[in-house]
Amino acid sequence: MAEAEATGLIAIGAGLAVGLAGIGSGLGEKDAAAAAIGAITEDPSIFGKAMIFVVLPETIVIFGLVIAIMAFFVL
């Protein structure tokens, strides 16, 4: 019973880690992507560089994912 409770809490923690990280990076990406689209509209040649800046906040989700995996397999 206690083990099932612990597994449930780990699952909730993992979910929160990925979910909250996703919300955070989404908020960050919102402005970065809007600015990138604006810049690409004026100069399409910077598409590659702009894309890198758009996906940079995405790395935060990977941190969340790592924590979630660690919660499941290490704890």
Partner: peptide, 14 residues
């Protein structure tokens, strides 16, 4: 307001 989009465009124009 879409400040990020418009500001990026005007900065590119500037």
């Amino acid at each position: 307001s879409n400040y990020a989009y418009t500001a990026a465009r005007v900065k590119a124009k500037k």
